[in-house]
């Protein structure tokens, strides 16, 4: 039996990047109908940072995250988490990777309705047959303000509370990196701001690495760095963003695009979503 005790990884702001992409490419369809959701992406995400991936609908930001997290297979190129090449791992190795080294936060929270908040938080460790590190659990619960909510089921929690439970679940196993997909997409602006503050605190105070996909400039402004993506390529990089600087960056993307390209964008977005 695996009795590994899960501890938070040591915060290490310097050193090799937590996540890397090299010439990462994802193509749907073939020949004439081929759509390049990702068209040769090279990008590094530093350890101990909160990075936002931004871009308009259909830009390929979600696809990039799926490939980096090993949820989807790349057409070519390589993605790494730490020193492990994610592209090319089989399903069991990927499951192991997700258990130990990666956490997820979803737009629709995706908590299990039949479990309490506490059971939801500890589930990843239990799936891996591990032991919950109570000290780390208490730290997470305190940081996320969930002390009074642990015995509640998801249906008895507000959206913001549910997302905070989801963040705790993503962090419980002490992953090297947490991927968050539009974590504020289903929340009102106050709860959204609260959740973003917690994400930022977990990076600053708990030394986590978080990569967040969003299309909301205000949300992106909580990050340490914003990677802009358009038409499947890296289109910009903003360090220490503010809502204004992010908006300016996005505006710059739009002016780059050909006026006629707007009309085809929704079609592309459909294809990528599917």
């Amino acid at each position: 039996m695996d009795t590994t005790v899960y501890r938070p990884a040591d915060p290490a702001p310097a050193g090799p990047p937590a996540v890397r992409a090299r010439s990462l490419r994802k193509t749907y369809g073939t020949g004439e109908a081929a759509v390049h959701a990702l068209d040769g992406v090279d990008v590094d995400f530093e350890r101990g940072h909160f990075t936002a991936i931004m871009g308009p609908s259909g830009s390929g930001k979600s696809t990039l995250m799926h490939l980096l997290a090993g949820l989807d297979t790349a057409s070519s190129g390589h993605a790494f988490i730490g020193d492990t090449e994610v592209t090319g791992l089989n399903d069991n190795a990927l499951t192991q990777l997700r258990r130990d080294r990666v956490g997820f936060v979803f737009q629709s929270f995706n908590l299990l309705p039949m479990f309490t908040a506490e059971q939801n938080i500890t589930l990843p460790v239990e799936l891996a047959n591990g032991k919950v590190d109570r000290a780390w659990f208490d730290t997470l619960v305190r940081t996320l303000g969930l002390e009074a909510r642990l015995s509640h089921r998801p249906s008895e929690l507000s959206g913001g509370q549910q997302q905070r439970v989801a963040i705790a679940r993503a962090l419980i196993a002490g992953p090297e990196v947490v991927f968050a997909d539009e974590p504020t997409g289903n929340l009102d602006s106050r709860s959204g701001a609260e959740v973003l503050s917690f994400l930022r605190r977990s990076v600053r105070e708990l030394g986590r690495t978080i990569i967040m996909v969003t299309h909301d400039p205000t949300a992106a402004a909580y990050a340490d760095r914003v990677v802009l993506i358009a038409d499947g390529r890296i289109a910009g990089d903003i360090t220490d963003p503010t809502p204004e600087s992010v908006l300016a960056g996005l505006d710059a993307l739009r002016t780059l695009e050909a006026p006629g390209a707007d009309g085809s964008a929704p079609t592309t977005s459909q294809a990528v979503r599917a």
């Binding site: 997700r98 299990l112 589930l123 990843p124 799936l127 679940r169 196993a173």
Partner: peptide, 12 residues
């Protein structure tokens, strides 16, 4: 939900 469980570490 099955997909979520897979994402947080449930093997096939």
């Amino acid at each position: 939900e099955s997909a979520t469980l897979r994402a947080i570490g449930l093997s096939r």
